[in-house]
Write a protein that binds this DNA or RNA. Structure first.
Length: 153
DNA sequence: GCCAACGTTGGC
DNA sequence: GCCAACGTTGGC
C-alpha cells in the first residue's frame, strides 16, 4: 500500500467537508504530474495525508483513503466550472481523478512544525519550490509522520 | 497583496 | 526544439 500527500484548500474542500460527505471526488487537478499519479499509480486502499493549503494554518489535518480507480473528472466538461477545460474532448478526457474517503481527523501537523523536524526533511512537500498538489510519501516518511499525527502506522 | 518558483503556451 | 512571456501556486 502506498501513501500520498494531497493538498486541498480548506475553503474548497476541508477535512471536515470530507468527514461530512464521507467520500469525495478529487476534482480540479490540472497538472499533468499530479494527474499521472492518480491515473497510473494510485490504488484503492492507498493512504492519503490530507493537507490544508493556502490558509491560515497550512498543514496535515487528517487521514483519508483512495477508494476508486481513476476516471474522467466531470468538471473539465462543465463550462460553469472554474475547472472547465475547453480543449478536453469527451472522447479523450485530459483530466482524471480518484475518489477519496474519510478515515480520521488528526491534530494539525503544521507546515512550520514539519520544517523543524529533521526526520521529515526528505518530504517532497518541503523541498524548495515544491508545489505539486499530489506527492508520494515513502514508507520511512510515513513511519516518521504517524506518531506526529497520533495514529498507528 | 507580494513574489519566488514552477508549469504552460506559442512564435519562431 | 528553444525560450520568452505569461499564468498559477501557495507561503508569508
Amino acid at each position: 500500500m502506498n501513501t500520498w500527500l494531497m493538498k486541498s484548500e480548506p475553503d474548497e474542500a476541508s477535512i471536515d467537508d470530507l468527514q461530512r460527505e464521507s467520500r469525495l471526488p478529487w476534482t480540479g487537478v490540472r497538472n499533468y504530474q499530479a494527474r499521472n499519479f492518480m491515473r497510473d499509480s494510485m490504488k484503492p486502499g492507498d493512504r492519503v495525508l490530507f493537507y490544508h493549503s493556502s490558509c491560515a494554518e497550512p498543514g496535515i489535518a487528517g487521514i483519508a483513503e483512495v477508494c476508486s480507480t481513476a476516471y474522467a473528472d466531470p468538471t473539465q466538461f462543465d463550462p460553469a466550472s472554474p475547472y472547465f477545460d475547453s480543449k478536453s474532448l469527451t472522447e479523450s478526457p485530459r483530466w482524471q481523478l480518484v475518489d477519496v474517503r474519510f478515515v480520521a481527523k488528526t491534530p494539525l501537523l503544521s507546515l512550520k512544525r514539519m520544517r523543524e523536524l529533521p526526520q521529515l526533511a526528505s518530504l517532497q512537500l518541503l523541498q524548495r519550490g515544491s508545489r505539486l498538489s499530489i506527492t508520494p510519501v515513502t514508507t520511512a516518511e510515513w513511519l516518521a509522520l504517524a506518531p506526529l499525527l497520533g495514529v498507528e502506522p
